[in-house]
Amino acid sequence: MFLPFSWILGTSEWTPFDSNPIDCFLQGLVGACGISVLCNLMRVYHFIQTCSDSEIESKQRSSSLTSPLGGNWRAALQFWSVTLLLSLVGSRVSSLIVLEFSLRAVSAWASAGLDADGRGLDLVLIQCQFSLGCCLTCTLVFLHQGAPHCSLSLFLAAALSWALASVCHSLWSHVARLYPLHSTERYCGKCITLLTSGHTILASLQRVVVLAFALATVASTATVYNHFLSQKDALKFWTPLTLCYTMLVVYIQADQHRQASAEGLLHTVVLRLGALLVLMLTVGEWSDVLHVLITFLGEAACLLPSQDLLQAVLTEEEEEETSLNKYKRSSGHKTRECTKRTSSDRS
Rank of each mutant, 00 (worst) to 15 (best):
Y245V: 02
D345Y: 11
F237H: 06
L96F: 14
E13D: 12
L86A: 07
S58T: 00
S183D: 00
Q129M: 07
V283E: 02
S62Y: 00
K236I: 02
V98F: 11
R346W: 11
F228E: 06
L271H: 01
V82D: 00
E263N: 06
T339G: 05
A32V: 04
H227W: 06
T184A: 07
P180Y: 06
S230E: 07
H46G: 01
S107M: 07
L125V: 11
R258A: 14
A158E: 01
F79A: 04
C135I: 00
Q27M: 15
L178C: 12
A116N: 10
H169D: 05
V313N: 10
Q231K: 05
P305C: 10
L99A: 11
S287W: 08
L143A: 09
G298P: 07
L143E: 04
S87V: 03
W162R: 08
R92Q: 14
F5S: 09
Y327D: 09
E55C: 01
L88F: 15
L304D: 05
S287H: 12
G70T: 05
H291S: 13
S52P: 02
Q127Y: 02
L140Y: 01
I8M: 12
Q60S: 03
A262V: 03
V30N: 07
T200V: 05
S58I: 02
M1Y: 04
A260M: 11
T50D: 11
S102A: 10
E318Q: 14
K236C: 02
L114P: 02
R177D: 13
P16M: 05
Q27C: 13
G70I: 01
L195P: 00
L99H: 03
G264V: 05
L99V: 09
N226M: 09
H182Y: 08
S63W: 04
G10S: 10
S344A: 15
E100W: 02
G90N: 15
A75D: 14
W286Q: 15
G113E: 15
L26G: 02
T66K: 13
G90R: 07
L243F: 11
F2G: 08
H169I: 06
Q259A: 01
L29T: 13
A260V: 13
Q206N: 11
L202V: 00
W238K: 01
L310Y: 03
V141L: 06
D23Q: 14
A157K: 13
T221S: 14
V283W: 00
M247N: 09
L77Y: 10
L114N: 14
A219C: 14
K340R: 13
F142T: 02
F47I: 03
S67F: 10
W80V: 15
A216F: 05
G189Q: 12
L160S: 14
R74F: 13
T137C: 15
S62G: 01
L41H: 06
V175M: 12
I294Y: 10
W80Y: 15
T315P: 00
H291T: 05
T322M: 03
